[in-house]
Nucleic acid binder design. Structure first.
Lengths: 123, 123, 123, 123
DNA sequence: GTGGTCTAGACCACC
DNA sequence: GTGGTCTAGACCACG
């Protein structure tokens, strides 16, 4: 069963997108594997204190992307291949890195400073 | 006069936020200095193709933060001290780095991998 | 449901202020009670021929003052206690009376004349 | 010379309208008489700490209404007849009283309460 | 010309 | 359907 223990939505960015990112990150970190069972919309809704429709929206988008299979009246499961994992990893990394690097450059930082910032802020 | 040459707002994040970040980044990179004149609402709105009110909102928030002085009927100017620069730099870096590092960690990456990602995506 | 039947905004004073005053007056006259449902932005804006944003601004200020509770996606309701009623009544009366009395005095009228004016103009 | 001693503009209503009302009130209270000299825009501007353009706007509207005569390069003077005084008095009283009475009625007050409020707040 | 503020309209996440 | 927020345009006082 997929865990949402460390999930705490933050303001400003839509919750359903945070759920999607949470699951995709889990796929990349191998915390989530193909075949894993998803908590039902009702259960997860109660667990996170979030409206079921918001959960539904996230699940629906992941299903459209082909990462989830669900049958009406039955449980939902993760279903993806190794290629999906690589694709998702590249996608997430590209978005994260290009954004932060652009910002750092505009602040006038050099690559060496960026590297030391990772050292500083990591843990 | 503060330059907005490389400013091209992107969708999804409020324009006035991007203006604020642009100016703060300029402060950190010493491109913008205390005493510099700000373009007026009308001028900048025409230059960027943005509504004057959006500019106004950004300027107002910067004024509330104590980085801009403005008086009705007169031009607006940057006004901050060295301490502000350090504070802003820390603030921007903290937001950028904690966000990206949290994401990378959740994807299961180690610090060494993060460092090599900087190497890969820089330039 | 709160009524806006006799509401007709007049020029020169901000509409959102007039909405606030209308609601506060209703609280004082017991026409509006704690727990009453507020008309939604859309409904009221259509009813009064006013932009929804103007309604929003009035509601927001009343919420900040603690007289309204509202949650995204749900209806808004009045919520206040007896102490609020007294406070609002004093506030409204003080503003109204000091304003009109200052004007009458400046026109050179005596108290007795003011009293007879009330008699004359009260229906 | 017309006096502006007790003039202290308040927020929310345009200053030029407050100036107009101040002068009209003076006419009604006989503090201002036909033939009286008006302070020059420059002098009054300095006296009240208000922009000359704002003074100009008020004077212009009073001239359009036929209460002021001014010749370029010369001083401005009040010029009106007894009929004007009565008309202005009625106008001011009607506006003041209908406004405050409407407000008091909407708060659920009776005429007797309004009368006692005058007693309370006068002076 | 400047900045300050009010109203207008559109879009979005959410119930 | 609801409320929240961002952008757009107009008007005002002021230098």
């Amino acid at each position: 069963m997929i865990s949402f223990d460390n999930f705490s939505p933050q303001d400003g960015v839509p919750i359903y997108m945070q759920i999607i990112k949470h699951i995709k990150s889990g796929i990349v970190s191998k915390t989530i594997e193909s075949g894993d069972e998803l908590p039902s919309r009702r259960v997860l809704s109660a667990l996170l204190g979030i409206n079921p429709n918001t959960i539904q929206k996230a699940y629906k988008m992941l299903e459209d992307e082909g990462l989830i299979v669900s049958h009406t009246g039955a449980k939902s499961y993760m279903q993806f291949c190794d290629g999906d994992v690589d694709r998702i990893k590249s996608e997430l990394l590209r978005i994260e890195m290009s954004s932060v690097i652009n910002s750092l450059k505009h602040m006038g930082l050099e690559k060496s400073e960026a590297l030391s910032l990772i050292e500083t802020y990591w843990e």
